[in-house]
Computed example of a mutant assay.
Amino acid sequence: MTTSIIKSQEILVSTDLDKDQIKLKHIIKSLPKECFQKNSRKAWTTVVLSLAMAALGYYFLAISPWFLLPLAWIFTGTALTGFFVIGHDCGHRSFAKRRWVNDLVGHFSMMFLIYPFHTWRIKHNHHHKHTNKLDEDNAWHPIRPETFENWDKTKQSAFELFMRKRLWWVGSIGHWALVHFDARKFEKKDQASVKLSVAVVLIFAAIVFPSLIITTGVWGFIKFWFIPWMVYHFWMSTFTIVHHTTADVPFGSAEKWNEAMAQLFGTIHCDYPRWVEILCHDINVHVPHHISTSIPSYNLRLAYASIKENWASYLHDECKFSWDLMKKITNECQLYQTDIGYITFDKYYAQK
């Protein structure tokens, strides 16, 4: 392999390093400086795009006959996912240079989804610090057999049903409900911010939900908010599980965890239909985001092209979103044996 000379930073980056020698700083230094540059025009264009597409989606919902509603729901819910990605950039302070702008836009974009901005920001940053680390990663993470055995029968049955019946698409709803509304689950220094974010979404819901029901009825609430919100969670759950889950992606215990390889090989690039990628601001181009959270969403493709050029041999194979992909993940990645890898429920029961 060749050595890439990064003249602007006057460093040498060897792509012939042993994987245990690779540090995140090596990868970050190999990226063009342009990847980290914030562009106000591009950032606010994502806001305008999401607002326009959501408005178009709701117009589509308002005029559609019943047989076109599924298409309208899918489009509108996907457009709403774009608001989450904008909040995602704000949470990583990569949307704007000023923190107050990030906080303001983050709260605005995520309140439509009833997602408390600061609670998500704090928890999500923990995921980045501990990606694919057993017992630490708080995003989608595998369940170990010993953990499964300590659950009561009801919880075991629910988890097994969740995986066998391919209910991954509701996974983020449970995470949203259980993790993001209780300030007591956060450090004292963060509790004021958490309470503020929870208050923002509760006030929004207290105003919008009754107004929607009064003007359009219960069916209007379901039609205009609940089902698009469920579509958003379909994408939220799907992106989250696909980003880091396949049978050959390891989750390491703390003493064996390699930060750089967790981000390079443990983060998977998946191609989705182009219209989904546009509405969701390229969140699927996820490897560079795990190399550095300071890369704005509109620079992810530039960064990924550089990573593929310099670090291709360390990357996981790319995949394409499909029902077969989701079947493969849910069929194979059910329980996780430390230092061995994923096993199925059937193999787990056969071993007992």
Rank of each mutant, 00 (worst) to 15 (best):
H175I: 13
L51F: 15
P32K: 13
D182G: 01
H316C: 05
I27W: 04
P145V: 03
V105R: 08
K38C: 07
C333S: 09
S30Q: 09
L167K: 09
G220T: 01
S193K: 15
P273I: 10
S197G: 15
F75Q: 02
H107Y: 05
N299Q: 14
F108L: 15
H175R: 07
L68P: 04
P116S: 02
L302H: 07
I278W: 14
K328N: 14
Q37L: 14
E160S: 05
R41D: 12
G87W: 05
S14G: 06
Y314N: 05
M163T: 11
Q21L: 12
V198D: 04
E160M: 14
P142F: 05
G341F: 02
D248A: 01
D282R: 10
G220P: 02
K256S: 11
A254Y: 08
A254W: 09
Y336A: 08
A303F: 08
A54Q: 13
Y342P: 01
L104C: 15
M110H: 02
Y272E: 04
T246I: 01
E10C: 08
A183C: 04
A62W: 13
K320Y: 07
H127W: 08
S211I: 01
N102V: 10
I28G: 01
S313L: 12
Y59R: 11
W229R: 00
H118E: 14
R93D: 14
M230F: 11
S253W: 10
K38T: 06
D103G: 03
L167V: 11
I122R: 07
